[in-house]
Nucleic acid binder design. Structure first.
Lengths: 257, 257
DNA sequence: CGCCCGCTTGATCGTCATCAAGGGCGGTGG
DNA sequence: CCACCGCCCTTGATGACGATCAAGCGGGCG
């Protein structure tokens, strides 16, 4: 869920994960042995943890690195699927194109998360497009490799079923939010979902620009800004750029307007 | 998709499938050998077709019949999942409860379709409730039985993955519709999705009451009625109770308002 | 320094929900 | 057979939420 956590990939070279730095690096620059890294990266993805050494090896065979720059498209809506993607670092947005440049963000994918799995199991093409929000490093795992992995390890199939189920659950949550919650309620819900068991106070950065978050919540930037302002005036949050402070989580949860 | 098709379960006793008749029948009344029927029903569900005889037998062991009357709840939001449900005949709606009796219909499930699979693979409880729209006959397949079936036949796991993917795709479609389409556009889209390759003319019955359909499209009954009226005045559709006639499919598809 | 971009703030408009009332139909009971 | 009731649907009047249009602010980077 939380796309804003720090990189938890210690096996990646310890160069700062900031997109600014990454943008000046080329494949092989600081990863002469990048094949080995791929194996480790794959093995530590939530989806592939608990997978055998040999299965990982098969997946590595079918995977390749992709290093999109900020703004670059990974695939367009309507493109056919040949596999799926795992984010090593960076940030990817999935969105619908709309008339005249407007678009609706469906998801913001961060490190350790993956996307595009569902489309592999259907004949249909991507219903959304994927675009890098920052310079990123992705792994593309081919449909072929994944299917043989499923064939090999049937506990892996259950893992994927669980993964898709979670995603499905998330979408149902979205549908509920869009259907019967106001903009302010959606925003409050979004802020609180970053809650990590802390009670009382809480502080964090928005994982992306306010425009992107707004779209994710199905709001215009203007409305988003106004709601943030209202919440601030009500003393429920404090905003400093992307930094959000919630002095009283419970109070914010009570908010109903 | 089409929940309004006629029953395609010839192996069910040829008593009219009308809910009115069904409601006066008890288990065993006209199905003394209902265990055999269960096996055939399961084997012909889209999800289970291509499954071996022995796997079906395992599923039968873990399944039981449920005959909810109109209005009866199958499960409530928040209930834990112990398996999933397949609709033999009748109609089930999945919806979110909302304040003061208002509710939002997420899906209308018809014969041959199933629901509740996704929750089996997670620890979470149902995010929606399920209620019978008509007297219905369901099969409940236990989590246990399904998991052993997956264990047994790994092509079955792929089948389930495909099933979940389709559902996921549908939800993404809904999110797109809710996010960036007007009420009229959603309704038009809904009418056209019943399109079965016919071109030119087209005629069919709405699969449920207009209130239910309205909720499915995230509209109030009032707005739904008004849009129907507009489309009628524009000559794009004709409405007679639940019967919808579309004189020119292409013209309706052009509609953009 | 100046531009661009992300964000904010204000004014106005449209879509759709809400509230209210009435019509049509089927089922039930007198 | 008719009257009555409940339910589904329709139609009208009003209002609110949020989008759109327009303008201005402020910071980062060239």
């Amino acid at each position: 869920m939380s796309a804003r956590g720090p990189l938890n990939f210690p096996y990646i070279t310890p160069i700062p994960s900031c997109a600014f730095y990454d943008s000046v690096c080329e494949i092989g620059d600081y990863m002469p042995n990048h094949k080995i890294d791929v194996s480790e990266i794959l093995a530590n993805l939530p989806l592939f943890r608990q997978l055998g050494q040999d299965d990982i090896a098969l997946l590595v065979q079918g995977s390749r690195e992709i290093r999109p720059q900020k703004g670059e498209f990974i695939f367009q809506k309507g493109d056919p699927s040949h596999g799926f993607y795992a984010v090593v670092h960076g940030q990817i947005k999935l969105a619908f194109p709309s008339v005249q440049g407007a678009e609706k963000v469906v998801a913001i994918i961060g490190p350790g998360q993956s996307f595009g799995e569902a489309m592999m199991f259907m004949e249909k093409s991507y219903p959304v497009f994927a675009q890098a929000l920052t310079d990123s490093l992705l792994l593309h795992i081919s449909k072929q490799a994944l299917f043989t992995a499923i064939e090999h390890d049937n506990s892996f199939a259950r893992k994927m079923l669980a993964g898709l189920s979670i995603r499905l659950h998330g979408l149902i949550h979205d549908v509920e939010a869009y259907s019967l919650r106001s903009g302010a309620q959606r925003l409050v819900g979004y802020l609180l979902q970053n809650e990590n068991g802390q009670n009382g106070q809480m502080e964090f950065d928005l994982p992306a620009s306010k425009q992107i978050i707004a779209s994710r919540l199905n709001l215009t930037p203007e409305t988003f800004s106004r709601i943030l302002h209202q919440l601030t005036e009500a003393g429920l949050i404090q905003v400093d750029g992307r930094r959000i402070t919630i002095p009283d989580i419970e109070a914010l949860r009570q908010y109903d307007h």
